[in-house]
Design a protein around this nucleic acid. Sequence first.
DNA 1: TATGAATGAGGGTTCATTCAT
DNA 2: GATGAATGAACCCTCATTCAT
Lengths: 193, 193, 193, 193
Amino acid sequence: MAVDESGVSGARRRADARRNEQALLDAAAAAFLACGVNAPVRDIAARAGVGVGTIYRHFPTRADLVVAVYRHQVEACAEAGPTLLAGCDTPCVALARWIDLFVEFLVTKHGLAEALRSDDAAFEALHAYFLDRLVPVCARLLDAAAAAGEVRADVAAYELMRGVGNLCIGAGHDPRYDPRRLVDILVAGLRPQ
Amino acid sequence: MAVDESGVSGARRRADARRNEQALLDAAAAAFLACGVNAPVRDIAARAGVGVGTIYRHFPTRADLVVAVYRHQVEACAEAGPTLLAGCDTPCVALARWIDLFVEFLVTKHGLAEALRSDDAAFEALHAYFLDRLVPVCARLLDAAAAAGEVRADVAAYELMRGVGNLCIGAGHDPRYDPRRLVDILVAGLRPQ
Amino acid sequence: MAVDESGVSGARRRADARRNEQALLDAAAAAFLACGVNAPVRDIAARAGVGVGTIYRHFPTRADLVVAVYRHQVEACAEAGPTLLAGCDTPCVALARWIDLFVEFLVTKHGLAEALRSDDAAFEALHAYFLDRLVPVCARLLDAAAAAGEVRADVAAYELMRGVGNLCIGAGHDPRYDPRRLVDILVAGLRPQ
Amino acid sequence: MAVDESGVSGARRRADARRNEQALLDAAAAAFLACGVNAPVRDIAARAGVGVGTIYRHFPTRADLVVAVYRHQVEACAEAGPTLLAGCDTPCVALARWIDLFVEFLVTKHGLAEALRSDDAAFEALHAYFLDRLVPVCARLLDAAAAAGEVRADVAAYELMRGVGNLCIGAGHDPRYDPRRLVDILVAGLRPQ
DNA sequence: TATGAATGAGGGTTCATTCAT
DNA sequence: GATGAATGAACCCTCATTCAT
């Protein structure tokens, strides 16, 4: 209707949409932290200052949103693998430090660890993304450590990561339970014999 | 089998109610397995072939029901502790076997491990019951093993059990993840140094 | 089964039942006071220390119970009519004092006034009883006062009593509202012209 | 009819919602009439042809709905006070006619009088609204009449209105009971001496 | 595109009433 | 007769998802 809007509307829309998407990601991150990854859609929309429809447009499933929220950190974690392997004295140290990174990531995102183990179909995409991106990284570290004889050779990267993920569930709710300590013990248990 | 079940009419009425209660416990166990411990009240009632009111009569809160469903096994597990300690060659073996029992219990009751770590207020009673009953048992085994120098002395029974419980979450959903293996690794990580 | 119970059981039952009935009436009166005439059946049963079935046996409908609870006072009120008419200086004074009695009765029985005006079918018997017993008494007083020219002649006993009953609804909930004052005003309004 | 209803899409959406809200108000009024102010939410929704969620969106609490249903008439009644005072021959006539309006309002809205005297916490907002809006109006009329020596000076507007409200309870259920007649008697009782 | 109103399935809880014991 | 366990209808409320504007 307004004449002057047509000229730049393509670009405008893009910019608007991108700004909206970022607001949504921030809002979702905050909501996940407060209520877990199943935070009510309306909460997220309200925090972002958009309508609920906008969420569904940008992120058709909840998993899409969760993946998007954590993508940056997942990428950072994935990229840290090779770097650590190259920079540490032994593969075992690299593995331990990489797992520390992974734990730090999960522990500070309440609800993420829960989502990772949820069998809710809505999170399939999330599972797939995490596995595709991180399991190979972990596998390389694990293989290197195993090749050096520093860890048992019969542990799969997938199960190790699932174990670490599980240990991180509920972090922060209970001062008597520190996931980092338990993950350390688990990693210690990887030593041969 | 039980002597007092035949006799007078007073006991008869009780027998009826008890049979119903057992049906409810079985139904709830099945529902928990299928849908987790937050299974809809109506589902449980339907499985048991009773009205919803009957559930509320027997178990006013959900926690009451959950506790009742698992009480037998919790008791059995608790009682196994001293027995194993007395019967095994070393405290460490007793600890390992007791944890195997605990894991077997959790793994076959999908939903229980989830309930144990839920921060939903409805499960406080459940948490309390588990802690009261099992943590001391675990503590004795752990202390004995530590005294024998077989495990690190700086691990609390509570955190160990929480860790084991967490590792059991999601068991059975995924053939690539076997909680028993990971718990073994965790226990191996308890060795000194 | 027990031999010695058969001999006197008829009499025993009677005594038991009567005791039960009285306990129920007391319990119901207390429950009505606390929760109104729609007090939960189970509350009443619990207060009386009997099962709910016992209530239904003695008082098939709620109205039966309500009527029974208030019968004594209704009777007393009904009997006071002729006495007052005979003993007071004028019919108008008798009428006023009789209405005071009625108000006192209603005001101290929270929930009764509400029940009297309820159109719930369960209270038909209650309405009928009140009307049968009290309206004629009021009518005699009213007629006498009208005959003496002390009150308007066009007011029916039924509507007067309903009006008084309505004014008593909610008594005691609100210190700013005193049914007695308003009933006095209503009665004053009966004066001719 | 309303000028701003055509125009832009923003207003259009509003118009839809407003139409819905009006349907809800009508439906609620009908439901209140049939079942009292505690009419089931679903009934009201069904009458309005909307889902229950729509009710909760527009009127989060029942009191909100009740207030909204009666707001127009309350306002009209409140505004009639000063008009009558200015237009009638004597304050007493103005008072009587204003009370007639109030009674007409209550009598045609079965369930409202009941709601007014309910001690259910859900109706606090309703009470407050009625009191805030109507008691001052009544007080002015009453004061004027008292100043003119036409009515007793010791009657508060609040208690008078409560009395009138109470007399209107159950109107229409019983042909033998006409609230208007009794209110007239009550008002007549306000005359000095 | 963005909005947010509407929908309605889904889950929780209470309580009057019946009926086997 | 008395009991109280069982039933299930009837309410309430929330929230994910769709879709008209």
